[in-house]
Design a protein around this nucleic acid. Structure first.
Length: 716
RNA sequence: AGGCGCGUAGCUCAGUUGGUUAGAGCGCUACCUUGACAUGGUAGAGGUCACCAGUUCGAAUCUGGUCGUGCCUACCA
């Protein structure tokens, strides 16, 4: 019979040849015996489904002691299990004398040579296969039979499955429950023996007849089994699986079973935060063990984070040398130090050059210092529901800049408080400007959103919401809107004081809102500004987290400021596209059929003048002739920047064409929808109404812009 | 091989129960040192939402398939 093998040396441990039960070529041989070359052994021919008759010759050598599948075959056919390897993977004394003591690879060569010499070698051909290697050593692994300890796990798994099924324990995001169930429902008995030199030795002792005794220590074993000092006991060499010990963590750390004061108070805990790669190892086993020993679930929620990978999407690991130490992102590190760190104490020194090359490519100048808050904020921002987090230094840099922004905003606030003081909200409220009421309202919206994000564990959205509020609303608009009021302090001291109060109090509240996300800078700034509000306290950590209060919402103020922003952006757009220097003050005309626009102008005038750098703002009554101008629309409002000396007619035509083109695209899309009877009939009324409104707005805008375009054409 | 994910702007990622002319940050282009901030400001460019088919008035979103990619588990005589 011809067999193939990639490990010829295992022939020494063969105890059968297997064929498929329905393989007509061999059925007549099943139950008979063959002579195993080199060993002088006669081994049976067995029939087993495991054999693929299509593969090779359809005959498989069976080595139960050194192959997982062969082991199963061996059990089915009650085959002899012959271990031919020592722990050092050389050939042991079970093999014929000629091979004893040879390293497994030496033995392989020798056996091939000997088989050939006997004329039994059919052929040698290359064959691709995956060889299992030790993670750390890189050494090829041989299956090898040993005695180890197992936990019969089914009776532990059943209640642990139920606890998640009935919602006592919830995974966030929920889809991870599938992973948990998949593992738990196919759970195998748990091998708890580990061949390591550290850890808890397995509490099992053997006498000289290999009879086993289990107990907490040797003395108690002797006592329990009446073993005198004359009997020699040796403890199992192996240690317990680390996950076995750590699965006791949830309750043993709370004093269970001796001191149960903390246990009674804190167990079960609320949330376990961990990575998905730990679901099998820790989460499942903590649940099983805690239910078993305490009868309680260990925690109510399991928040699963993504796994942080390197910039190429690779899992970080010390042996790969692609680890990023958080400290190095916080304090920064030179390329030399980073290389030294990544190549120190390597288990596979041959990888050194490769790691150095990759590190130099990724961090040619080392890593800059980004600070703890920026790093922390980066992780929040990346904590979405996906399972991978590719680490991007660019984002950390962006958040470092955000920290800088917060710092500078605080400087602005403090600078404006020099020699000034504020009173309380009740005193200032009557003097609040629309801008003051707007930012107060926006803060409420933000606080509300943060509350929702925290409840749903969407820290990424929370991070973005905070950054948007602080940077794009507080800094970009409110601080700017406060300037005309503060600089004109003498004209309206009450309004200025009110603005100072709002600047300060919103900053203070924002710091508290951000504190869990950026603990250091918020503390640092809070220490400086809280006293200005008369707030005393040792630390922002001990201050209340802002609670949303819907009373602070102010729709009117939000509309007012949206209007002002729209007008300013319109003017800036003309400036930007018409290449008007930001240093140049310009005249602006406004015109609208809508009286509300005129009223808004009255309260907005000072803000517009400063933020858009205007020389004058003139209101044109409907029908009044306007000067030739560059135009922007904001709703029904026409924003006109007179062209004389400023604007190139052709450029303005191009600008209008671009705008008209955009609107026409929109009209086509929305008009198409509304022209479809099925859409109008089937879509919810609110959706249809919204589309109609959009269409009407776009149509009137395009008419206005076309008129402007024609006026310009006449001029040219 | 089996299981589970993922493919959205140059890059890293959001996009709730299908109803936007698809968003953010970084990067890019132009202009700007104005009295918080150049680690900044203003304006702008950039996407057939991997591909194909289907369901629907309507799909980045739901279904099926294809391709690509990642992880987990097992492992081929």
């Amino acid at each position: 019979m011809v067999i193939a093998t990639t490990r010829p040396e295992t022939l020494l441990g063969d105890s059968a040849v297997a064929v498929h039960p329905e393989d007509a070529r061999y059925t007549h041989l099943v139950g008979k015996f063959v002579d195993l070359p080199l060993c002088g052994r006669r081994i049976p021919i067995v029939a087993d489904d495991y054999v693929d008759p299509e593969f090779g010759t359809g005959c498989v050598k069976i080595t139960p002691a050194h192959d997982f599948n062969d082991y199963e075959v061996g059990k089915r056919h009650d085959l002899e299990i012959i271990n031919i390897l020592t722990k050092q993977a050389s050939i042991n004394d079970e093999a014929p004398e000629a091979y004893r003591g040879l390293d497994r690879f030496e033995a392989r060569k020798q056996i091939v040579a000997d088989i050939e010499a006997l004329g039994l070698l059919e052929k040698i051909e290359p064959h691709k296969l995956k060889v299992p290697r030790g993670d750390r050593s890189g050494v090829i692994i041989e299956p090898y039979l040993t005695h180890q300890w197992y936990v019969a796990v089914q009776s532990l798994a059943d209640p642990a499955i139920k606890a998640v099924e009935n919602g006592d324990i919830e995974f966030v995001p929920k889809n991870w429950e599938n992973t948990y169930f998949a593992w738990m429902r196919n759970i195998q008995d748990w091998c708890i023996s580990r061949q390591l030199w550290w850890g808890h030795r397995i509490p099992a002792w053997y006498d000289e007849d290999d009879k086993v005794y289990v107990g907490t220590d040797e003395a108690s074993v002797r006592a329990a089994h009446g073993l005198g000092d004359d009997i020699i006991l040796r403890q199992d060499e192996d240690v317990l699986d680390t996950w076995f010990s750590s699965a006791l963590w949830t309750f043993s750390t709370l004093g269970w079973p001796d001191e149960t004061e903390f246990f009674d108070k804190f167990h079960p805990t609320n949330v376990l935060v961990t990575g998905f790669d730990i679901i099998f190892f820790w989460v499942a086993r903590m649940i099983m063990m805690t239910l078993k020993f305490t009868g309680q679930i260990p925690f109510k929620k399991v928040y699963i984070t993504g796994l942080v990978r390197d910039e190429n999407g690779q899992k970080m690991s010390k042996s790969k040398g692609n680890i990023l130490d958080p400290i190095d992102l916080i304090d920064g590190i030179s390329i030399e130090d980073l290389l030294a760190k990544r190549t120190a104490d390597m288990m596979q020194p041959q990888l050194k050059q490769k790691i150095e090359k990759a590190t130099k490519a990724s961090f040619p100048d080392g890593i800059a210092a980004y600070g703890t808050d920026a790093l922390r904020f980066t992780f929040y921002s990346l904590a979405s529901t996906g399972r991978d987090i590719k680490f991007d230094l660019g984002r950390t840099e962006g958040y470092r800049n955000f920290c800088n922004k917060i710092w500078n905003a605080a400087r602005y606030v403090m600078m404006n408080m020099e020699d000034k003081s504020v009173s309380d909200a009740a005193h200032h409220a009557p003097h609040f400007s629309p801008a003051d009421r707007w930012i107060i309202s926006r803060f409420e919206g933000t606080a509300k959103q943060i509350e929702e994000c925290m409840e749903s564990y969407r820290f990424d959205i929370a991070a973005q919401t905070l950054q948007e509020f602080v940077w794009n609303e507080y800094c970009d608009w409110y601080v700017e809107l406060s300037k005309p009021v503060l600089w004109d302090d003498e004209a309206n001291p009450e309004a200025a004081a009110a603005a100072r109060f709002v600047l300060l109090s919103i900053l203070e509240k924002s710091l508290r809102l951000m504190h869990p996300f950026m603990p250091y800078i918020t503390e640092e700034v809070w220490q400086r500004i809280a006293p200005l509000l008369g707030i005393t306290g040792d630390s922002i950590m001990l201050q209340p987290f802002p609670v949303p209060n819907a009373d602070n919402r102010d729709e009117q103020a939000e509309e007012s400021i949206e209007w002002i922003k729209g007008v300013i952006v319109g003017i800036r757009n003309i400036r930007g596209e018409m290449d008007i220097s930001p240093a140049k003050t310009i005249k602006v005309f406004l015109r609208s059929d809508n009286q509300a626009d005129k009223q808004r102008l009255d309260e907005a005038r000072v803000f517009l003048q400063k933020l858009a750098k205007l020389e004058s703002i003139d209101w044109l009554e409907p029908g009044a002739t306007a000067p030739t101008a560059a135009t922007q629309l904001h709703g029904q409002l026409e924003i006109l920047v007179p062209m004389a000396g400023l604007i190139d007619v052709a450029a303005e035509q191009a600008r209008l064409d671009k705008e008209i083109g955009k609107l026409e695209g929109g009209i086509k899309a929305v008009g198409g929808k509304l022209g479809n009877a099925k859409f109008v009939d089937n879509a919810p009324d609110a959706v249809v109404a919204k589309e109609r409104e959009k269409l009407a707005e776009m149509e009137s805008a395009v008419v206005a812009l076309r008129t402007k375009r024609e006026e310009l054409a006449a001029l040219a």
